[in-house]
């Protein structure tokens, strides 16, 4: 597992430098621009695509064919991609939260901001949960097409969350009839749903990959 994560991180850090710069740029822009929902949404969603990118690099060099001959199980080959996605989403979420709290200190409500970031992180995990099994089964090209479809669905989320976040700037306790505690509950339920979906997605991916012929 360590070897797989090392490989993916190294490959991504070499090939995705531009994206890392873009993510940093968006995160910092989000800290200085008032209407910042999209700037916080984008880096987290972009990060969720990294395991798919890592998988497409694997496909290009037929890594899985070789990896299966090493002391690595099929299960680990699948799990490493989820761990990469979860760790990446967590890392960028914490980073986004820290940057915003640092630069918008006193100008934002940490609770609402945390809710927003948790919701975006959950949404990005859901998209990964849907794309990974499809990419493992049909290849990353088809996985990316499917991703476009899920992004359209997820477009509904930022519209709502952006409104919630902007409202949070003024620290309202009631947004369009939704109380803050109600919002927290809704976001926590969404996060729990994403967690359950991740467990289900991992199970399905392992089964798919277990039957896959690596030639």
């Amino acid at each position: 597992m360590k070897a797989l994560l090392l490989k993916d991180i190294r490959v991504l850090s070499i090939n995705m430098k531009f994206y890392f710069i873009l993510i940093l740029l968006y995160t910092f822009m989000g800290a200085f621009v008032d209407n910042m929902g999209i700037f916080q949404l984008y880096p987290i969603l972009l990060f969720s695509l990294f395991p798919i990118t890592a998988l497409s690099y694997d496909e290009r060099c037929h890594w899985n064919q070789y990896g299966i001959t090493m002391p690595i199980s099929r299960r680990d080959l699948v799990l490493s991609k989820y761990i990469l996605g979860i760790a990446g989403a967590l890392l960028i979420s914490v980073f986004t939260l820290a940057v915003n709290l640092l630069f918008r200190y006193g100008n934002t409500d940490p609770g609402t901001l945390s809710c927003f970031i948790l919701a975006v992180m959950s949404a990005s995990m859901i998209s990964l949960d849907l794309i990974l099994p499809i990419s493992l089964c049909f290849g990353t090209e088809k996985g990316r097409l499917f991703y476009l479809g899920t992004v359209i669905l997820l477009c509904a989320a930022p519209a709502i969350l952006d409104g919630v976040f902007n409202a949070g700037m003024g620290l309202p306790k009631d947004i369009g009839g939704i109380s803050f505690s109600g919002l927290t509950t809704a976001v926590c339920a969404f996060a729990l749903l994403s967690l359950l979906l991740t467990v289900f997605s991992i199970t399905v991916s392992i089964r798919i990959f277990d039957k896959k012929e690596l030639v």
């Binding site: 190294r10 070499i14 090939n15 690099y57 060099c61 070789y66």
Partner: peptide, 15 residues
């Protein structure tokens, strides 16, 4: 060679 092409020998050794 099924190793990621952007890596060098030091990376391969580490992996």
């Amino acid at each position: 060679c099924c190793l990621p092409e952007t890596l060098n020998l030091k990376d391969i050794n580490g992996i």
